[in-house]
Design a protein around this nucleic acid. Structure first.
Length: 425
RNA sequence: GCUGAGGUAGUCUAGCGGUAGGGCGCAGGCCUGGAAAGCCUGUGGUGCGAAAGUGCCUCGGGGGUUCAAUUCCCCCCCUCAGCGCCA
């Protein structure tokens, strides 16, 4: 969320950003929020004065009693104070809740390079990489191919868990693990520390890292407990340092999260109905960085470069798009997607999402950095996250891009050391 | 799940109705040719103030009693130890 002090001092920036997003209904929120903020501070001054009087009088009563003096006048005054204080506190709480509710719903301030657009059709392509293969035969649907070869079982998974689930078997299990290990090794070599997080986290931690709407749309709640299944390791890793202060020397902190990801929302159907593209559960290796505010834009490019390197090495053609205002959501200040070439559909489809969340998550989570040379000054850190590999989607890309006429699937060379040096699945 | 002990500022620890004290760490200052040691100050959140300052809040969380709660009462959460169950 946005720091109240930032909103207070630069409401012009907040308003301009909402206009850029076309989110004009929230302009009124800013006005109302600023009004409530003024009232909140008036109330604080009043209430603090009442509390000061209460504290003083309590001490006076104590001193007078010890001196054996009469305290009835003091007690009479003191008796009125708690009620007055309580009335003020009630109003203060109401206003604080209202301000917080606005803050939780106001989106992050966008980077100037974010293109204006109404929805995902207006995202801006930045580049294309890789050689797109041509096929002189009809490609098989990756899901059907996987079932025929005994690499996946969707029907039995549907029987026991519902649509959107799958059993992975034999070669695809090894491929899944190979992709994870490839990604971890590549990131570890670049200074990222691998992390396996808890797969369930509680609501208050979750509110720090995600959009409120996600609780209804995306997350699975565990019945009877205050915990949710994680939708990505970004969430537990972001919340990991909640309420903490980093030393400058400890930043940037580069982490590589490895976890299953659970998502209720699986969206559109069509070609993807049966298969590995839109599923309720998949495994993902994720890059996550905590850094000083001045470093985040450079690191955002680093995360994208790392992700691109993976797809180049996997020999999967891709393009990079700059996500527009209508598609970016509330948390990120700028977001790139990498879309892998899916030859059967003749189109690029999302496999990586790479975001600079600037201080938006850090403000909610209260994560700061302290500079040793200026001990008193603390700033909120910036957080960034980017997919390295979401194994289900990359497996689909491999099953399609590396298929041959005989229905065999070649294993990308970079993965073969992780696959007992096999050439084909 | 049961029993017991705990939760005090970055960390350790005292206080157990009347302004939360000390050790360590860290930051700054004095001292020094430089350092160490020693000594002094500071250390979380927030309000007012140009600043110097000054006030309020903070003893796991929430209620209650009281002029006044870290302290007394009630509910909840978490940690540790032992026992039980368990891959």
């Amino acid at each position: 969320m946005l720091d109240i002090r930032f909103i207070r001092s630069r409401p012009d920036i907040v308003r301009a950003d909402l206009k850029k997003r076309g989110d004009t209904e929230k302009l009124e929120w800013v006005d109302d929020l600023l009004k409530k903020d003024v009232r909140a501070r008036e109330l604080k001054i009043e209430t603090d004065a009442l509390r000061q009087r209460r504290n003083t009088i309590a001490r006076e009563i104590n001193t007078a009693r010890k001196a054996g003096q009469d305290v009835t006048v003091l007690l009479a005054e003191a008796a009125d104070l708690p009620g007055k204080i309580r009335d003020n506190e009630t109003e203060q709480e109401m206003i604080a809740d209202a301000i917080r509710a606005y803050q939780m719903r106001l989106p992050n301030i966008l980077h100037e390079s974010v293109p204006v657009g109404k929805d995902d059709t207006e995202n801006v392509e930045i580049k294309r990489e890789g050689r797109v293969r041509t096929f002189d035969f009809e490609l098989q649907n990756h899901g059907q191919l996987a079932v025929e070869r005994g690499w996946a079982d969707f029907e039995r998974a549907t029987k026991i868990s519902g649509a959107g689930f799958y059993f992975l078997k034999s070669s695809l299990v090894l491929l899944d693990l190979a992709l994870q290990r490839f990604a971890i090794d590549l990131l570890a070599q670049k200074g990222y520390t691998p992390v396996i997080p808890p797969y369930m986290i509680n609501r208050s931690s979750y509110e720090g890292v995600t959009d409120l709407g996600d609780f209804e749309k995306v997350m699975y709640k565990i019945d009877g407990d205050d915990v949710y299944l994680i939708a990505t390791s970004e969430h537990p890793i972001g919340a990991m340092y909640k309420g903490e202060i980093f030393e400058t020397k400890d930043l940037p902190l580069r982490l590589a999260g490895i976890s299953p990801c659970f998502r209720r929302e699986i969206g559109a159907h069509g070609l993807d109905t049966k298969g590995l593209f839109r599923v309720h559960q998949f495994t993902k290796v994720e890059q996550f960085v905590f850094c000083r505010p001045e470093d985040s834009w450079e690191i955002h490019e680093e995360l994208l470069a790392n992700a691109e390197e993976m797809y180049r090495k996997l020999e999967i053609p891709y393009r990079v798009v700059n996500i527009c205002t209508g598609d970016i959501g509330t948390v990120a200040a700028k977001k790139y997607d990498i879309e892998a070439w899916m030859p059967r559909e003749n189109t690029y489809k999302e496999v990586v999402s790479c975001s600079n969340c600037t201080s938006y998550q850090a403000v909610r989570l209260n994560i700061k950095v302290r500079d040793k040379s200026n001990f008193e000054s603390k700033q909120h850190v910036h957080t960034l996250n980017s997919t390295a590999v979401a194994t289900s989607r990359v497996m689909r890309a491999i099953l399609e891009n590396f298929q041959n006429k005989e229905g065999l699937v070649e294993i990308p060379k970079i993965l073969r050391p992780y696959m007992n040096d096999q050439e084909y699945l």
